[in-house]
Design a protein around this nucleic acid. Sequence first.
DNA 1: GATCCTCGAGTTCG
DNA 2: CTCGAGGATC
Length: 675
Amino acid sequence: MIENKLFQELQSLREQVNFHNYRYHVLDSPVISDAEFDRLVARLRQIETEHPEWTSSDSPTMRAGGGVAEKFSKVQHPAPILSLANTFSLDDLRAWYERIVKIDERVADSEFVVEPKIDGLTVVLHYRNGLLVQGATRGDGEVGEDITANLRTVCSIPLRIPVDPTNPKAPEYLVVRGEVFIQNREFEILNQRLLENGDKTYLNPRNTAAGSLRQLDPTITASRPLMILAYNIVASNGEVPQTQWEVLRFLRRMGFPVSDQVERCVDIETVLSSLERWTDIRDRLPYETDGVVIKLNDLRLSNELGFVGKDPRGAIAFKFPAREVSTVLLDIGINVGRTGVLTPTAVLEPIELGGVVVKQATLHNFDYIAEKDIRIKDRVLIKRAGEVIPYVIGPVSDARTGKELVFTPPEACPVCGQTVEHTTGEVAWYCVNSTCPAQLVRNVEHFVSRGSMDIVGMGIRIVEQLIEAGLVRDVGDLFMLRREQLLLLEGFAEKKADNLLASIVESKKQPLARLITALGIRGVGEVLAADLAAAYGDLDTLSRTTEEELQQIEGVGPNISRAIVDWFGREKNKQLLTKLKAAGVWPTAKRKTILKEEQPLVGLTLVVTGTLPTYSRDQVKELIQKAGGKVTDSISKKTDYVVVGENAGSKLDKARELGVKILDEAGLLALIGKV
DNA sequence: GATCCTCGAGTTCG
DNA sequence: CTCGAGGATC
């Protein structure tokens, strides 16, 4: 009698735990606290330990069990797991529609269902009498691999359906198709963890989901934040809905997670306008999508339409432009920066990505290459950071042929041939030859660049030309250039020479902060240069400073102060300063104290992101600085405001995440009191 | 001593 | 945008 009561409690506990698990993982709206949930599970475990004879495969305590497998066995699917034809344009989509209308005119009156195409892995789940009995990968569509033990660990996959027993019973036999994936955020967190443990990281969420499902030890899979969305019934022996829309509702009732981004469209025009919204929706989704799937809602009609090759006619995938693409790493080139740092760049088999043809990408540094085990001739995955600058995510290891070459960092500077140096503990390798021509070019380039002296019309080509001709040996020489010298250079006519000379003269008016930035002292950029200018007022005073004095300035420690004092101590640089002074390039700055009442933003740190309606990025920065505010690049807890414009990317998300106040341009102007 | 934050440096293509 | 490094902070 007591036993009986205990058994009832056990069953009730299982039901409760399954239900709350479902509330949490599927509906994302838990109704009890984590602590309460843990208590239920603990009690359940206790009873199960006392009565091992009562264990059952649908018990929530049995998700990760069963030990380590040797390999996965093959599974024949009950029906082919179909792939879909792809289209890449709205025109193609319309063409598809017109084709199938021609085949069967009832299509013209049919509804469509539009669903996201998640970039994950297709899995096939078998239920008998409501119990999950098998789970498999898609494989080649006919035969997959048995990964039941791993799929059982995915909390949003129901072990027993329907999860809510008040719903109608499940068919005795039901096979469901779904997509297993990992959310972007969870991917980042997991990779971070792997990196900290010194383990190999994954390339992207899809790759991670694949790797997680292929673990032979289900406890590892259990530790991965896998999710599933179900969208199809592969086979069944009971009554199942005959429209896609109803199938999704049915799956939801059974307790499967179903995408909430699904749309039912009355005709093809509605589908097309839905697709227009999808470019925005795609960016906001917490997981990666590579397109949307458009299905005829009437599944019987869809079936009757038949196949083209292996693809059913009644559905089609509309693919988004790829954000990542793979190509061959032809070679690794070396750049020498103005500080002498050697940076490896990837020379790529040209490939289109986001509307441009990418031929090169940064590899950051030599450690990065080693860490990711990137080899020459590897197939590598490329992504455009912030949709702009391409970088190599890592090698596609599966595509290895054995002909790949491990890359060895050079021992000599590729430009001047001098041996390169490396400080232990640091990542960068330096060419320390102060007369290395590459460094001179980069140095001059930096000097004339927009954030520095801003000499308009002087690009890298002209800089190289001037150095080659022997007219420029250091940046001071720029101010000694004469018209007749320029006219001797190839491609220089009078107009061009005059324009260049005029902008050189114009640059002499640049404020001291700009000049300090332009000098290119290691560790001194825009921000610190502004502080130094305000603290010292002119270059003579600055050149006489000491390390101790410099360290009074915020952000200056032993390393940077040493670099500054070093720089001014070098004979070459002393000569340069003499040249600049002689040429009249000698701006001074007022050592002013900040007037608080006119400076509404004093003490505030702001970050600007996206494109603002009226001001340029630099203008806004200046505006904020004039109001006493500080502009930085990265958002943290210390950021007071984020000024957001059009096309703001990840920074906006970060701001929301950290609860940083968000302003638009008008909001900023109001804050400054400029409206 | 560890962790957080900020800055600097290098980056692609049209 | 990414990464590394230096500095600040706890």
